[in-house]
């Protein structure tokens, strides 16, 4: 019991230290461009935290999270710009609606095997994208919403600068991490992990595997939706482009790169990939003059393949493993040299 509280306390202090660092960062980094990259990292982190819950704990892959992200963004965008709904209410509406869509899609799917969820979410992602492109009256079609989306504001404070938005995004991101952490260490989280350990045993203890997977799927869709809303109010303009299949894949890459079974994985994965993407945008045109933004996909592909082959548990676990192997080897050499 004492051990348990000690662990919990350690977990909590880690989170507090990390939060402090995050919230101090914008006072050190004052360059607007860097700040905007950090804001985007924060927004993506929210999506990927949800995705990690789904992939790492429910063992399901979603290739349609960009759709949920897009549903959030467009719900916020359309409700606030066209119908003058309050942004916070729109965000909530987006989250609830997206969660419901995920639930409805997920319900029949979770009776099936692993691959099918990947497929169904992929299908959903493409359908949503087609709708965003084609429903011109509602969405503005390929060129995006015509009316601009208002900035978010808290009371009188309008969040119209990177500096101000940074705090909002990262507070939400930290909340997302903390809440996800709560889930992992709850009855539901244990049930989900038990499925990984032994599905037979889990069921024999009364764990309704399908139900819990479905719940986490809906939760992760809501995460993505909220991130989408935040994105819409940050950029204040949206078009279908950022919500396609490539984005879904990018989220999966981020989740996998960070590693699925640690709450720190998402931040690491998102940061590595986002920074890499930004760096490539700088570097590639210098090497290949005619190159456009598409070239980053080469690197994405290779990272994914390499990670799946060499560090299938992701960077976080991979680093820990490497460290342990190194320590083990060192101990052995110490022993032999001692002899």
């Amino acid at each position: 019991m004492k051990d348990l509280t000690k662990r919990k306390r350690l977990r909590h202090s880690l989170i507090i230290i990390f939060s402090a660092i995050i919230l101090l960062l914008p006072f050190i980094i004052t360059n607007n461009y860097y700040l905007s990259v950090l804001v985007i990292i924060g927004i993506h982190t929210i999506v990927v935290v949800g995705l990690c819950l789904l992939m790492g704990y429910a063992g399901q892959i979603s290739l349609g999270h960009a759709a949920f992200y897009g549903l959030g963004a467009y719900t916020s965008g359309i409700l606030t710009s066209t119908y003058n709904v309050s942004p916070w209410i729109a965000m909530l509406a987006g989250a609830v609606g997206t969660g419901a869509v995920a639930y409805i899609i997920g319900k029949p799917i979770f009776r099936l095997k692993e691959h099918y969820l990947a497929l169904a979410t992929l299908g959903l992602g493409l359908i949503v994208h087609v709708i965003l492109m084609e429903e011109v009256e509602l969405t503005g079609g390929p060129s995006g919403l015509t009316k601009s989306i208002p900035y978010l504001s808290i009371g009188k404070l309008v969040l119209n600068s990177d500096f101000k938005y940074y705090f909002l995004v990262w507070i939400v991101a930290l909340l997302a991490i903390i809440l996800a952490n709560n889930v992992v260490h709850s009855r539901i989280g244990r049930a989900l992990r038990s499925i990984h350990g032994s599905e037979f045993a889990a069921q024999s203890l009364g764990v309704d595997t399908g139900k819990h997977k479905l719940q986490v799927f809906a939760l992760s869709a809501m995460y993505a939706s909220i991130a989408g809303s935040l994105y819409a109010h940050y950029i204040t303009f949206i078009s279908p482009n950022p919500f396609g299949l490539m984005t879904s894949i990018q989220f999966v890459v981020m989740a996998v790169v960070g590693g699925l079974s640690s709450i720190w994985g998402p931040i690491l994965g998102v940061s590595v990939i986002t920074v890499l993407t930004e760096a490539l945008k700088e570097v590639i045109p210098k090497i290949i003059p005619q190159a456009g933004g598409e070239y980053e996909i080469v690197v994405f592909g290779f990272i994914l393949v390499m990670i799946m082959i060499f560090l299938p548990e992701g960077l976080t676990a991979g680093v820990v493993n490497l460290y342990e192997r190194w320590r083990y080897r060192k101990e052995r050499t110490d022993e032999t040299s001692g002899n």
Binding site: V299, F300, G301, F302, P312
Partner: peptide, 27 residues
Amino acid sequence: SAKRASPVSLVILTIGLSTAIKGIALL
């Protein structure tokens, strides 16, 4: 080399391959 990976990892692996091939074709 990834045969022992879980089905989810294999899906991700083939997505990675797909992206890498496409990227090389782009180059």
